[in-house]
Amino acid sequence: MNTVIFRTLAPFLTALMLLFSVFVLLRGHNEPGGGFIGGLIAASALAIYGIARGIRPVREALWFHPMTIAAFGLLLACIAGLVSIFAAVPFMTGLWIYPGLFGIVVPLSTVMLFDFGVYLVVVGAVTSIALALEREDI
């Protein structure tokens, strides 16, 4: 595992995979993808980084504890469900807005927020398990 090639390439691979995971997350509503898959891709990306460089750089790069990220995701998902209170519709009803951004209509919804929460929970939970298992001394 500790070849020079792998260790040099890993950060680029991780960056690409993270970007890809967000892409998969965002396109999930209409094409194959979504929060679960995106989260798993992002977790694998971080695992690769950890295997190549050790877990300290991963923890530093994440800034937050991965479990905090997961908890924030759960909070986002709950908020996405609760927004419907203000529209006087049942819990978890999807609400959509269509703001114009530079002349392009960008559909935004509580459903997307929810999917984002799912993404963060999966990334956070899987990464924290992986990081906890990896040995400090690599």
């Binding site: 999930g28 509503h29 209409n30 094409e31 194959p32 993808g33 979504g34 929060g35 679960f36 479990m67 997961a70 908890a71 995701g73 759960l74 998902a77 709950c78 469900g81 819990f91 978890m92 999807g94 459903v111 929810f114 999917d115 929460g117 799912v118 929970v121 999966v122 956070g124 939970a125």
Partner: peptide, 25 residues
């Protein structure tokens, strides 16, 4: 949403998913 699987996960059965991610965490 055109992706039925994702729409089921995040919208039609969203409350299930909320429970599942709580379990994951």
């Amino acid at each position: 949403g055109a992706n039925v699987v994702n729409v089921i996960i995040v919208d039609f059965r969203g409350t299930d998913t909320l429970g599942e991610i709580a379990v994951v965490m």
